[in-house]
Simulated assay, not measured.
Amino acid sequence: MDIDAWVWWLIGAAGLGIGLVITAMPELGMLAAGAVAAAVVGALGGDAVFQVLVFAVVSVALIAVVRPIAARHSAQRPRLATGIEALKGRQAVVLERVDGSGGRIKLAGEVWSARSLDAELTYDVGREVDVVDIDGATAIVM
């Protein structure tokens, strides 16, 4: 049983695609695209040297062009703070007097236990405070 070269290129592209999914390395996807291009050339009757040349050119071109663009894009993307990191730096309103031993605040629409960063300071009801840290389920305020 003789299998055409273009089928081997597709098998290689599928293997590279599986590797891409397993490792999340985008370069494998670019190599898979090169293998698909070589399979097209093989299916159209191109000889083995031309198929390898197309694979190399398409793969290198994709890696040379797409990879720097993707790197720039990921470097420019702002990191979104989530969870407790998103609460740090926000303002809250004191619901029950807050001092070094405890109290209650309203932070992001929720009631939180809180304590003062400086144990000597107290914050009375209605005062706005800044959240500087979260310790477990307690907001540290100043």
Rank of each mutant, 00 (worst) to 15 (best):
V111D: 13
P26T: 13
H73G: 05
G29Q: 02
A32G: 13
W112P: 03
R97A: 14
L10M: 15
A64L: 11
A24R: 10
A114I: 05
E120C: 01
G136T: 06
V21G: 09
R104G: 00
E120Q: 14
G100I: 02
A81D: 09
V58E: 05
V41A: 15
L95K: 13
A5C: 04
P78Y: 06
A139P: 04
A56D: 09
S113E: 15
A75L: 05
A75V: 08
E85T: 04
W112F: 07
I140M: 12
M30A: 06
A13D: 11
W112L: 04
A56N: 04
V52M: 14
F55M: 07
D4C: 06
R79K: 12
A24H: 09
P78D: 11
G12V: 11
I134P: 01
G126P: 00
A5S: 14
R104D: 03
G136D: 08
L80D: 08
R77I: 01
V57L: 15
E27D: 11
W112K: 05
L87G: 03
V131Y: 00
A61L: 14
G45W: 13
A108L: 04
P78W: 10
A39P: 13
V41T: 15
Q76K: 14
V58S: 06
I63G: 00
F50M: 13
V129K: 00
T82V: 00
E110C: 01
L31Y: 04
I22H: 05
G12C: 06
M1E: 12
E128V: 10
A33V: 14
V132P: 03
I84R: 01
E110I: 02
A48V: 07
F55A: 13
D99M: 03
A5K: 05
D135L: 09
A70K: 05
W6D: 06
D133C: 11
A5R: 10
A14C: 09
G42I: 09
G100E: 02
A108Y: 02
P68L: 04
T82A: 01
V57H: 11
E85A: 11
L95I: 15
F50G: 02
A139F: 03
D47F: 07
V52I: 15
V66Y: 12
L31V: 06
A5T: 14
D47I: 09
P68E: 03
L53Q: 04
R79E: 15
M30F: 12
S74R: 15
D124R: 11
A14Y: 01
T138N: 02
A43S: 08
K88I: 14
A5L: 14
D124I: 04
R67W: 06
R127P: 00
A61S: 14
V65W: 06
A108N: 12
A43P: 07
A92L: 00
A81Q: 10
G46R: 06
L28H: 06
W9G: 12
R127W: 00
V141P: 00
D130E: 12
V41G: 09
